[in-house]
Design a binder for these strands. Structure first.
Length: 275
DNA sequence: CCGGAGGCCTGATGGC
DNA sequence: TGCCATCAGGCCTCCG
């Protein structure tokens, strides 16, 4: 579910709620796979440690631990949320951390895909992630280098976390629409002006998503919300995603849907021609 | 190198 | 109302 803007928003919300500086005094695991399969080992590793800070890398939430140093690595996958609450009960809680201020940090995940694992080091994780699209280092030239290496479909490349970190299905479709590029274009076929457009579009849709506190699409339990229960409002700024059959907001042509790389893909056949 | 299928999971939705 | 198929914001592994 959550992509980079939703993960970013989650972290900001947790920081604002004062998670940094809290000490973990215990851990409870309802679904062993959530923590990597060894609940006792996980609880033993995190108990007593202080949460120093929170960072994002790609779609990962990284909680840096101190005394001694280490990391809690959270990935929300499709339906996960982190809840910071004084109430540790409720359905779909797969793991919870008891904090020293009577609150709990709960990993809520109806589909049980989300993960919260302990790591001594992030080296292995960071090796598998491409550049951050909103960092200054992500220039049009860097994007050109990423695209040059492959004939795979643009949509597939945007979703490949090893090439660019943080983009998911919503923002991939939105970026390609904004850039006016067909999702099936071979990545290496883009001309410099098209690369420049895609670069700007990626940053634009991600910035907008962050400004809007994320996209709360979906239904009920699958709907993204912040740790305090608030919803994002980026769904109001979505141009193509899940608008199959509805008129394109640029030209009125019905939006079409196709499957690329096993993922549902939405685009305007008039504004995003293959050429 | 690449694409496709299947797996992991549960819930919502739409057609009949 | 009930049943069934389909779909879902992610990512991994296996196979050809």
């Amino acid at each position: 579910m959550p992509e980079m803007p939703e993960v970013h928003t989650t972290i900001q919300s947790l920081l604002q709620a004062g998670l940094a500086g809290r000490r973990i005094i215990g851990a409870e695991v309802e679904w062993p796979r959530t923590v990597g399969g060894d609940p006792q080992g996980f609880a033993g590793a995190v108990r007593g440690r202080r949460i120093d800070g929170l960072q994002r890398r790609g779609k990962y939430i990284l909680l840096s631990l101190a005394e001694p140093a280490g990391w809690l690595v959270v990935h929300l996958r499709m339906s996960g949320r982190l809840l910071l609450t004084s109430d540790d009960s409720g359905p779909y809680i797969r793991a919870r951390l008891q904090l020293d201020d009577r609150r709990w940090l709960c990993l809520y995940a109806p589909r049980r895909f989300a993960r919260m694992e302990y790591r001594d080091t992030l080296v292995e994780l960071l090796q598998r992630l491409g550049p951050e699209p909103l960092e200054p280092g992500f220039t049009p030239d860097v994007l050109a280098g990423i695209l040059a290496g492959t004939r795979r479909a643009l949509k597939t490349v945007l979703l490949d976390q090893q090439r660019i970190a943080g983009i998911g299905n919503i923002y991939a479709d939105e970026a390609l629409f904004e850039a006016g590029l067909h999702p099936q274009r071979p990545a290496a076929s883009l001309q410099p002006p098209e690369i420049a457009r895609l670069h700007a579009a990626i940053q634009s849709v991600l910035h907008r998503g962050i400004r809007n506190l994320g996209t709360s699409l979906g239904h009920g339990k699958a709907n993204f919300s912040l740790p305090d229960g608030e919803s994002g409002r980026n769904q109001e700024d979505i141009r193509v995603f899940r608008r199959t059959g509805l008129p394109c907001l640029n030209c009125g042509t019905p939006i079409e849907r196709m499957i690329i790389g096993q993922r549902s893909t939405h685009y305007c056949p008039a504004c995003q021609q293959y050429l």
